[in-house]
Design a protein around this nucleic acid. Structure first.
Lengths: 218, 218
DNA sequence: TACAATATTTAGATTAGCCTAAATATTAAT
DNA sequence: ATTAATATTTAGGCTAATCTAAATATTGTA
């Protein structure tokens, strides 16, 4: 099993590699982890021995499939815990990160499954970042929460973040379906509620709470 | 801040000292932590330097007030997490220990406060062990869950484990109050429900679920 | 009380993860 | 294309937590 430190390096490599797909440099990890570059070289060698990264001397590392799988599992845990902290423990967005950073290193597949279930299998965390599923698959991250959609623009409903019967029933009642093309008529500054034009030309009002759970693409 | 290993030693010392109040030997910790006795001597010295234990060479250690405070905080976290795992995530009793063992080392006062709140400030964990409060105070551990009470015996209601309005309302409805002297008339083998004689001579039936939340003293 | 059995400590090594300083490699600019 | 600036690696050391083997202390029993 990986040490906590190895897990943190793997995660950092994943995030930096995601930016452009190039090999990740010693320097960038040294900065992101606040450690000396020499220590990073050490760790690159150790991770390479475990076949978690492909390491080319002086050119940096790329995650192997094995490494990427581990990274996605850690990210899955991190984002599920963030969701838990905000939704169940009423943390604010800015309070969750440090705690999730610790919780993500707890090892228990059962725990993650049960947590996922408790939260209704969310696809996005409170920051709108996609949560990898148990197989490491990510929902296309170009979807955004409806709360971030702009007034006047048109979108297609891509997914719902909250699969609970209560929310699905609500959507059904207001007449909103997955895949619907909608247009934002107006956003109320005061409470973040939105006036939305449906495909059948009806206009409905969505609360900010509802909009948060709807993910759309332009 | 203490390392994970230091925390585990402190906790082990607390549990062994609780047994009889004597100093804790190198050997007993060596066995409980599955490490070599020489390693324990090393750690005793380090903990002693930090004034977490009083160490007398070849005679063992006793926790200082500072050490005991830390032990109680770790135990509080462990038992709150166990309660969470069983009550909210539907773990069975035997599945919780290893996971709680990891979760207890997450450092965040806010997290523990919020978790305590989510669980309705429980006084006992799923195994019936008392949960220290935020100041490290323990509810007298001689209280037992009503489910462990014997048929034919008399008890006094000492505390309730679930402070939720729903449960308190239920107790009120059946006419049970804190401090009541009750007698167990019979325990139904099949579902664990109990026939209980109240001070006013009325007999009521308590479900196992309700009995689990009631703590009594002989 | 003496001595054998058991427990504890000391001494010296090892590993992971970090450091600094010096050597080497890569990249960018003239 | 050369050189200066920047990045990377190597070499050697440190600390926490572990180990084994040997030395010492404590305890229990004849």
């Amino acid at each position: 099993m990986l040490t906590l430190t190895e897990e943190n390096y793997i995660k950092a490599i994943y995030h930096l590699q995601a930016e452009d797909g190039n090999a990740v440099s010693t320097k960038s990890i040294s900065e992101s982890q606040s450690v000396n570059a020499a220590s990073v070289t050490d760790m690159f060698k150790r991770l390479s021995e475990q076949k978690l990264v492909a390491y080319e001397k002086s050119r940096g590392v790329k995650l192997t499939d094995k490494g990427r799988k581990i990274a996605l599992k850690i990210i899955r845990k991190h984002r599920l815990w963030e969701t838990f902290l905000v939704e169940k423990l009423k943390f604010t967005w800015d309070e969750v990160h440090d705690v999730a950073e610790q919780l993500e290193h707890v090892h228990s597949d059962l725990l993650i499954e049960k947590l996922d279930e408790l939260l209704n299998y969310p696809k996005f965390d409170p920051h709108g970042d996609p949560i990898p599923d148990a197989d490491g698959k990510l929902t296309d991250s170009k979807a955004i929460s409806l709360t971030e959609a702009k007034s006047g623009e048109s979108y297609k409903i891509f997914t719902v973040n909250d699969d609970s019967p209560a929310f699905l029933k609500y959507l059904n009642k207001v007449g909103l379906t997955l895949g619907d093309a909608i247009k934002i008529k107006d956003v109320e500054e005061f409470d973040g509620s939105m006036i939305v034009l449906l495909p059948d030309k009806r206009e409905i009002i969505l609360s900010k709470q509802a909009a948060l759970q709807l993910y759309v693409k332009p």
